[in-house]
């Protein structure tokens, strides 16, 4: 082959290599936490009598990122940002967890999610998200005060279809883009924890002993890629408080993957 053409080919390969190298660096720098696989929990019989394989997920919402987990030991780049995080079976922070806000659940299954809400809250912009939607029976189970020391309900569990719009701490909202995959929309409002207790615990470098606890179940369809996020405007300062933690993956949003 002509020497000049070979040299040109070398430039192309070198250029493609530089591009690939930069791309690999940028892709690696995204620091996306890995995925949490749902845990198998036997079977679940829906109100219509159908039986599904049953899976569970547990997670917490925090007023800041100092719990560590997927953000790292010191809370990562933004220790003061609100964040979701992986939880133990009794709502305890998993400080060494490497994964945080991406979840994988099986297709055609019942998925039960329990969320402990350690953060306080204010008023929703849109009352729509104060209602429970897309869950089995259109309901969720709420424990307003859960004692994380004794692992018991400090208040009685009750079934809810909505909570007052001015008592919302965060929401857990799954939705997908318009496509040919099965639609999946789930919205559950999370009751705020007591503001004074949250503040007092934060000042001591911890989290309130009495978060609210919300449990709900929904049925998955075919495989699909979805995202979830909080719809409560908690990312102070930007874009009507939907910036910062609200617009950053691995804080108040993540991927929700349904796999066969």
């Amino acid at each position: 082959m002509n020497k000049r053409i070979l040299a040109a080919l070398g430039t192309v390969i070198l250029g493609a290599g530089v591009t690939a190298g930069i791309g690999t660096y940028v892709a690696a720098a995204k620091n996306d936490s890995g995925s949490i696989m749902a845990t198998s929990a036997g079977s679940f019989t829906a109100p219509d009598g159908k039986t599904y394989p049953h899976y569970t997920l547990t997670m917490n919402t925090y007023p800041n990122s100092t719990f560590g987990g997927h953000h790292g030991e010191d809370g990562g780049a933004h220790p003061d940002w609100v964040s979701y995080g992986a939880a133990g079976p009794y709502g305890e922070p998993l400080r060494d967890a490497k994964t945080g806000t991406n979840f994988v659940v099986p297709a055609h299954s019942a998925v039960t999610i329990t969320i402990w809400q350690y953060d306080s809250g204010e008023t929703l912009n849109n009352d729509f998200f104060a209602k429970v939607r897309g869950t089995v029976g259109g309901t969720a189970t709420l424990v307003e005060r859960y004692d994380t020391k004794s692992h018991t309900n400090a208040t009685e569990a009750k079934t809810i279809t909505q909570i007052p719009h001015d008592a919302v701490g965060h929401t857990f909202t799954i939705h997908g883009v318009s496509s040919d995959q099965d639609s999946l929309f789930v919205n559950v409002p999370l009751l705020l924890a007591n503001d004074d207790e949250v503040t007092a615990a934060e000042e001591e470098g911890g989290f309130t002993q009495f978060p609210s606890m919300t449990t709900f179940t929904f049925i998955t369809g075919d495989e699909g890629e979805y995202i979830w996020n909080c719809e409560f405007p908690c990312g102070d300062g930007t874009v009507a408080r939907f910036g910062n933690a609200m617009s950053a993956m691995s804080y108040m949003s993540g991927h929700f993957t349904v796999k066969g």
């Binding site: 530089v18 791309g23 940028v26 720098a29 496509s179 617009s247 993956m249 991927h255």
Partner: peptide, 27 residues
């Protein structure tokens, strides 16, 4: 041009995700 290639590579598949969405916006 390199940034364009990163954009087009990320858009090569519908689900994206190769680059962090915030980095993508900045790119």
């Amino acid at each position: 041009g390199i940034l364009a290639m990163l954009i087009r590579t990320n858009l090569g598949t519908p689900e994206g995700g190769w680059i962090h969405p915030q980095a993508y916006n900045s790119i």
